[in-house]
Structures are given as structure tokens and as C-alpha cells.
């Protein structure tokens, strides 16, 4: 049993009461599935299931990196803009140098941008919110400056396979996202790095006192978030088969929302990738299902906003309720 699970059990009311924190979101997802499916049977079709996997893969990858940033006590607002810079620079490298250098170069660019944020967070007193807010603007501006606002075109045709291809019946972006979740889950739960991320998010002074190199591991956290944004950038670039300086606007907020809806607290020291995965599924199924039953995109914004607030409110209420007994 890991630290997080133990905390959850300690929080939960004693006896045979329902462990709401474990079942609330899965039940909610199931309920959405029943409602959407009954209103439009195509919701259950395999095409649609693979669509949801493709559409949510980019958000999922960003949310994986975001989970580390939030659990460590920080936040990464730059990831949406990092998509743009990967899309633009990665595309230029794809056109000029070919498939492998383009993909590797694209991921590297975002990792480097994450490293810059990480170094600033680790070495200065500037809060992560401000550092990554600055990076958000820097990266977007760079993407526009390099391209003059125009899309980069002429990408090699084989590159399309990352976004549009399938491994057997499974869509490639979905597979990439699942691999990322498994790898990140292992990283957070079974390695010293993961334990340090929890420790410095829970109580930074205590972590320092325990001899953890907090600066180094903060740096790694933002490198990792940048890396995840890099992979996400490659996926979105392949899905659009062009380099788009405008892509990914406001996606960082959805990545944060996914983490928070899952039940991970802003402030750090707590959270898991299973929760984040559930948060991603909520946002993805909601958007897809509302599209399928033809609900206007304005109403969708209202619904998602209400769910973010409701999810966090429910979580807080449950914690208080539980500890009162």
C-alpha cells in the first residue's frame, strides 16, 4: 500500500460505508455513458470509442506532466503553448531533416523549454505560476515569430501514422497515452524520484531537512512536464499534418482541470495518475458525448465549468465529513 492509498483509507469513514472517493468518478462516467448512449447509440460504436481515445490523447499527455507539477507543489501553465512551439519547430525539422530527427527534435524542444522553466523554479524565488505563465507567452510568441503566423506545410506523408494510424484495432495516439500513464504511474509510485515529488509537495522544508535535493528534483519535474508536452505536440502535429502556431490555446487549463477533477489537490503532496486518468476521461467523454447529442459548444463550456467546481467541492465535503467522525 502506498502513502496515497493509506491517506485515502485514513480519510474514509469507518465501517461498511461506500468509499465515495474511489467510486464517485467511475460511477459518474458510467452514468454519462448510459445517458449519451441512450440518446445517440453511435456513442457506443467502436469508431466513436477510438475517436475519444484520439481526441483525448493530447490532453492526457499534458495531464500526465501536469500531475507531477501539481503533486510537487507547483503548476505548469506553459504546456498549451509548448504544443505550438513543438508543432512549428518540429514541423520545420520534419520537412528539412525527415521523420526521426523531426520527432526527436520536436520532443527535445519542449523538454528544453521545460528545463528553462524548471531551472528558474529551482534556482530563483519566482513562483512556478509566474515562471510558467511567462513561458506560456514566450513560447507562443516564439511560435508566431518563427512562422509569421502562417502554418508550416509539406510534412512527410508517413508522419500521419502517429495521429491517424492504428495498432491492430487500437488508435496509435491512445496507445501512446496509455504507455505514458503506465510509465508515469511507475515513476511516481515506485522510484525515489516519485517519493521525492510527494515529499517536496507535502512539506518542502521537511523534504530539505530529510536531505532530499529539492532543487534538482523540481528541475526534473518541469523537464518531465515539458517532455510530455513534446510528445503531445508530436501527436497534435500529426493529427493536423501541419505546423500550427495557434494550436493548443487554453489546453493547459484543461490539463489542470483534468488533474483537479480527478481529486488531486492544488498545493501538492497528494494525488495519483489513476485519478488524473479518470479526470481526463470525464472531460473527454463529456465533450464527445455533448457533441454527439448536439449540445452547443457554449453550453459545453458552462457544463465543464460547473463540473470542475462540483468535483472539487464534493472532494472537500467528503474529506471534512470523513474526518469529523
Amino acid at each position: 500500500m502506498t502513502a496515497d492509498d493509506a491517506a485515502v483509507v485514513a480519510d474514509a469513514p469507518r465501517g461498511s460505508r461506500v468509499p465515495w472517493d474511489r467510486v464517485a468518478l467511475p460511477l459518474f462516467i458510467l452514468g454519462m455513458g448510459l445517458v449519451f448512449g441512450s440518446l445517440n447509440p453511435n456513442f457506443y460504436s467502436w469508431t466513436n470509442v477510438t475517436n475519444v481515445a484520439r481526441q483525448s490523447s493530447v490532453l492526457a499527455l499534458l495531464a500526465v506532466g501536469q500531475t507531477f507539477a501539481i503533486v510537487s507543489g507547483g503548476i505548469d501553465l506553459s504546456v498549451g503553448s509548448l504544443l505550438a512551439i513543438v508543432s512549428v519547430l518540429g514541423s520545420m525539422q520534419l520537412v528539412a531533416l525527415g521523420l526521426v530527427p523531426g520527432v526527436v527534435g520536436g520532443v527535445l524542444v519542449a523538454t528544453l523549454a521545460g528545463a528553462v522553466s524548471g531551472a528558474l523554479v529551482a534556482l530563483t524565488k519566482i513562483p512556478p505560476f509566474i515562471v510558467t505563465l511567462g513561458m506560456l507567452s514566450l513560447a507562443r510568441g516564439t511560435a508566431f515569430t518563427i512562422t509569421g503566423g502562417m502554418p508550416v506545410v509539406g510534412l512527410p506523408a508517413g508522419f500521419e501514422a502517429i495521429g491517424a494510424g492504428s495498432l491492430g484495432p487500437l488508435p496509435v495516439p491512445g496507445v501512446i497515452a496509455v504507455v505514458a500513464f503506465l510509465g508515469a504511474h511507475f515513476l511516481l509510485r515506485a522510484t525515489p524520484f516519485g517519493r521525492y515529488v510527494y515529499a517536496m509537495g507535502g512539506n518542502e522544508a521537511a523534504a530539505v531537512a530529510a536531505g532530499i535535493n529539492v532543487r534538482l528534483h523540481k528541475f526534473f519535474v518541469y523537464c518531465f512536464s515539458g517532455f510530455c508536452a513534446g510528445v503531445a505536440g508530436i501527436v497534435i502535429t500529426s493529427r493536423t499534418l501541419s505546423g500550427q502556431p495557434t494550436v493548443g490555446e487554453t489546453l493547459e487549463l484543461y490539463a489542470i482541470a483534468a488533474v483537479v477533477i480527478g481529486g488531486t489537490r492544488l498545493g501538492g503532496g497528494d494525488g495519483s495518475l489513476v485519478r488524473t486518468l479518470l479526470g481526463v476521461v470525464v472531460i473527454a467523454v463529456l465533450g464527445n458525448g455533448l457533441n454527439l447529442i448536439n449540445v452547443s459548444s457554449y453550453i459545453q463550456l458552462i457544463v465543464i465549468g460547473a463540473i470542475i467546481i462540483a468535483a472539487v467541492g464534493f472532494d472537500l465535503w467528503r474529506r471534512e465529513h470523513g474526518s469529523a467522525r
Binding site: N51, Q244, S297
Partner: peptide, 14 residues
């Protein structure tokens, strides 16, 4: 653009 692509995929699924 990502949103328009998702909307179009959802129309195809519908």
C-alpha cells in the same frame, strides 16, 4: 483547430 478536428470526428462517428 484541434477543436474543429474533434468536432468533425464526432460528426463522422454520429
Amino acid at each position: 483547430l484541434d477543436k474543429q478536428i474533434a468536432q468533425m470526428e464526432d460528426l463522422i462517428a454520429s
